[in-house]
Design a binder for these strands. Structure first.
Lengths: 134, 134
DNA sequence: GCTTGACCCTGGAGTGGCTACAGGCTGCAT
DNA sequence: ATGCAGCCTGTAGCCACTCCAGGGTCAAGC
């Protein structure tokens, strides 16, 4: 038997999502528009809870909403090969690796800059110097 | 003697910035509105070249435009201690470290997920499973 | 039955940091 | 005179939300 329906606030609490974000996901087509109560409140069911949970976990792993949409679409075609799912995940991993490398390089430069600070006046500041006339 | 003035396109090429971005910086108050030619073209000088160079290098290091603004303001008060400059840089470094840690953790999780893919059908996909009912 | 307060609704605007038009003007070479 | 690159303004779009105003709804307490 189905668990009774619940409000957007309940869904928000259950998934750690803000109410506005849930409505935004609905506008974006990630969540289907749920039925409404007599007072025009959204009435969600367990399916929505699962779907939103999926979205949140994927978002926490850094997938874009477009990627999440693609993953959700794929999840519905249960007989297909999961190669496409794997491809999305691998592409995302590659992107994360690119970001990590960039951020690490940036960190090195930034640390070097800070190291050179001799704590004098602004006029002789090495940090501003390094950013300066280049 | 001053180098003659040059156009926004020249400034863009010299600094590797898009023309639209330069105009955006002007709107945002990061670059002062330059004098105009008879035909209403922006006429930049060497000072602008240096200032935009500074902005670009700071942006490349990941400073926000608000931080860049603060650094530029500080750079003008040449007699002050550069402690404030140091503080901005250190705060940014800390932020970069936070991002690095988060991204590294995310990478680990993502790699684990992908590793488990047995390349079967979507129905038995471990990736979707891991994102799923949780 | 009435009030209070928490919750829900819609629609619109704002965030950062650009980027991309559309529609028109300028400037220089041919 | 003509063509074309480059410049001008103003506006809208991107991502993924987040917040707000101005209202409607509902359950609990008195």
């Amino acid at each position: 038997m189905a668990t009774g329906s619940f409000s957007i606030g309940d869904l928000a609490r259950a998934t750690g999502t803000k109410v506005e974000t849930i409505r935004y996901y609905e506008r974006s087509g990630l969540l289907p528009p749920p039925p409404r109560t007599g007072g025009n409140y959204r009435a969600y069911g367990d399916g929505d809870l699962m779907r939103l949970g999926f979205i949140r976990r994927a978002r926490d792993l850094g997938f874009s909403l477009a990627q999440v949409r693609a993953l959700l679409d794929l999840a519905d075609q249960r007989e297909r090969s999961c190669a496409a799912v794997d491809a999305i995940a691998r592409e995302h991993l590659a992107e994360v690796d690119r970001k990590l490398a960039g951020l690490a390089a940036l960190r090195r430069e930034l640390a070097l800059l800070i190291e050179q600070c001799r704590h004098g006046t602004v006029a002789e500041c090495r940090i501003l110097e390094a950013l300066g006339p280049g």
